[in-house]
Amino acid sequence: MNIFRLAGDMTHLFSVLVLLLKIYATKSCSGISLKTQELYALVFLTRYLDLFTDFISVYNSVMKVVFISSSVAIVWCMRYHPLTRRTYDKDLDTFRHYILVGVSIILALLFHDRFTFREVFWAFSIYLEAVAILPQLVLLQRSGNVDNLTGQYVFFLGAYRAFYILNWIYRYFTENHYSRWISWLAGFVQTALYADFFYYYFVSWKNNAKLQLPA
């Protein structure tokens, strides 16, 4: 565990906490894309298949459980919770996310480390995670105004993979650890998708103004 990896995990954890806080405190999930949340639930459920077969550390297992349970809880709040499900901007959240699932399945079947059940699902989760933010970004762009907590949620979620890239670079030089090229490529795509958002986030932060995305 190095400082970059820890920073990545913490920003990831923080993004989830900010999102749960937003839904709990404001009793609203407006501005949040259910499509993106469903994709994340699918990402964690398929990536952490090793939760019961490989023990790495208590930290590792706890984080896996946190990411699986929080993503499922958020989907539940948006779909079924009597108070919050009505605040979901259904009409703005029209991204055809099943296309992302389909493309990720095809990519995982073609490009993987080994043709085993677990490795194909792992590759699928990496590809899907790289693009899972797209419905959320489209929803924000459509609604224009972004509330503070939602803006912070997306910011921390984007920062997490950027820290992971630094962690892979660090591990490459210090441990001679060779992260799989699948993670490198998907990690870069994932971080690049946030470039626009990061730009407007920093501009609004510098000007101490409300975050607004151009139409």
């Binding site: 490989d54 590792n60 896996k64 990411f67 490795e119 792992w122 992971y164």
Partner: peptide, 10 residues
């Protein structure tokens, strides 16, 4: 053949 390496990252 080497065994499947566990994924140590999240």
């Amino acid at each position: 053949e080497e065994n499947e390496k566990p994924h140590d990252e999240l």
